[in-house]
Design a protein around this nucleic acid. Structure first.
Lengths: 338, 338
DNA sequence: CTTGGCACTCCTCGCAGATGAGTGCCAGGG
DNA sequence: CCCTGGCACTCATCTGCGAGGAGTGCCAAG
């Protein structure tokens, strides 16, 4: 186990390195922090920390740099989430409150996060699977062609065209529409399959085919369109990474374009509380020199989606975590108000 | 006026520079192209071209590099759009044909363009203003609360919640829905205001208020949501720019995040034919060292939206123009088929 | 366990000279 | 009149070298 002071040294190293972006030496440490010990002592501590793998030196006779393991210890034990100032909080609330629809909410959230953290922001659209049904609409486009429109409590709309095996009268349609809505409005998506299973039974033989088709299309929408959408922003902040550029930035940009990768990344976050994945903890190859700070957000107690930021492992973790948490909270509020 | 051979020299310079990314000298030119003249002659021509402002040298005793003006002449007079190979065409068709909905079409188009041109691709969603109405749906959410859903012929769906001044019965609602649809289905958006102007008159006094509210909400949707959406991709290709990175790439990434900027950029494109904006011809400051190749696309003869790519001024114009044109054509076909 | 001292490593920076690609100009030839 | 070879000149790039300095590791003493 590391002594109290050694942890203090590690904390100081992380803070300094994040601030200066340069390897930090023993002398600078004693000057900038009140450690009450001499550089030589710090050197011994550093040697121990290096031995344990928390810090490393780029080359002999250079200062030390935290390793992924060092950052991990830092966020787990040494850092407190830094709450935002009230001014910032108010700014967030105002900015989000002006959103006019779901797209706008998500768009504003992305911009906000990117600006606050000066990093790349990723926001997932409220997931269908955890939402509830606000309304289902069936429209007749042609005698044997329907359009199915699904509206969620988070304001999302999904639509899909259904080709029916046989023409379907307006009255039957109205009937189906009414029965469908009475069964599933207000229910969670995951419940829907169970709730509609026996619906075809109550229709005439000849209509049953169409009803089944519509239902399977509905269920398909539920599953398939659970395909999560997301929005990203602040990619320009990647240019602050360092100057050894193309090598670093390229794979990150590539990863950011792969929605699958991002969704997996966000998916790994815990439902509640801020999750931090540091460097090599990220499975994806292009992101081994970045950290991902993510958190779930939702209109109620439960998370309906996640959001987060992607930045260099050398980032201001307390500040970033604070910003991410605060933004998630306010987005949740906004969604709840609709 | 420049002689035939001098134009030939300019063409050779552009081609070589695009290929090698390095200033091209007189000797290399004569070796790599069959100009049938000596380096000394080429030097004279180059001096003349420089005099006219078509090329420039980064510093004395370096090769020449085309200027924006040089590229302009090149694309206007010296370059033929390079058609894609049949294999490429088939690949495009297959890839696009598998799209399941509008989002998917646009998403695939972006990826396709980015991959073909190895540059940043920008695709605008089919614009509402030039589309026609496929269906309007009115749903009752609460006694005095409606949801308005608008479906376009290009598959786009816009929805909006309307708060009514007074409760509105189901029968009146069905009535309004039917009349609305019979008037505007199949019509272009720009026609809608005229077509629905007198609709409130045919309703009872007490319902008129709600009808007007709904209609104005509809018109608002038409105007406001003509707010164009777009999708971009292939930003990772920016890393191929050069190595003087942060300076170049940063403003470009920033510009790409400003939808307004991009929309303006695409908006400047002609409706038909490929438009090329080179370097400083782009109004936006961050894009003065990039070129934008754009083209309109649509399901019929008329363009409903635009798409294009953003890349360094030093780009393969014939190839890029060919790819952009081809992709636009096939996207148009796909949209027409729905 | 802490501290000051000291030798050592090795990165960074600046400078000088060599290299070489590329140019501009000029005089001669078709 | 245009093309061509020759030639001097410019200037960015590369290389090697030495000084400077930050930072370390180790040791012996408090």
């Amino acid at each position: 186990m590391l002594s109290e002071r050694r942890l203090e040294v590690l904390r100081a190293i992380v803070q300094d390195y994040v601030g200066t972006e340069e390897p930090v030496g023993s002398k600078a440490l004693t000057e900038r922090h009140n450690l009450h010990v001499s550089p030589a002592t710090v050197r011994n501590d550093m040697a121990a920390l290096e031995e344990e793998g928390y810090i490393a030196q780029p080359h002999t006779s250079a200062g030390r740099v935290p390793t992924d393991k060092g950052y991990r210890l830092f966020v787990d034990k040494l850092a407190d989430v830094k709450p935002l100032s009230t001014a910032e909080r108010r700014a967030i609330q105002n900015f989000l409150a002006n959103a006019v629809d779901l797209d706008d909410v998500v768009g504003r959230t992305v911009r906000l996060l990117a600006q606050l953290t000066r990093q790349v922001a990723v926001v997932q659209y409220p997931s269908l699977s955890r939402s509830t049904v606000r309304h289902v609409e069936l429209l007749s486009l042609a005698p044997a062609r329907l359009m199915l429109v699904l509206i969620t409590d988070t304001g999302r709309v999904e639509q899909r065209v259904v080709d029916c095996p046989a023409p379907f009268g307006e009255t039957s349609l109205a009937d189906l529409r009414a029965r469908l809505n009475s069964r599933i409005v207000g229910e969670r998506f995951s419940e829907v399959p169970r709730l509609v299973a026996d619906l075809p039974d109550s229709f005439d033989q000849e209509e049953r085919g169409t009803v089944s088709t519509v239902l399977s299309s509905l269920l398909e929408t539920l599953v398939e369109e659970t395909e999560e959408r997301l929005m990203i922003g602040g990619t320009a902040n990647l240019t602050r990474f360092g100057q050894d550029f193309p090598l670093t930035i390229r794979p990150v940009l590539e990863a950011l374009e792969e929605q699958v990768v991002l969704l997996k990344l966000l998916g790994e976050a815990k439902d509640s509380g801020v999750t931090v994945r540091i460097g090599h903890e990220n499975a994806h190859e292009g992101l081994t020199s970045t950290s991902v700070v993510s958190v779930g957000y939702g209109s109620g107690d439960e998370a309906v989606a996640k959001l987060g930021v992607v930045g260099p492992t050398r980032m201001d973790y307390p500040g970033t975590m604070g910003a991410v948490r605060a933004v998630a909270r306010y987005v949740g509020q906004i969604l709840a108000e609709n």
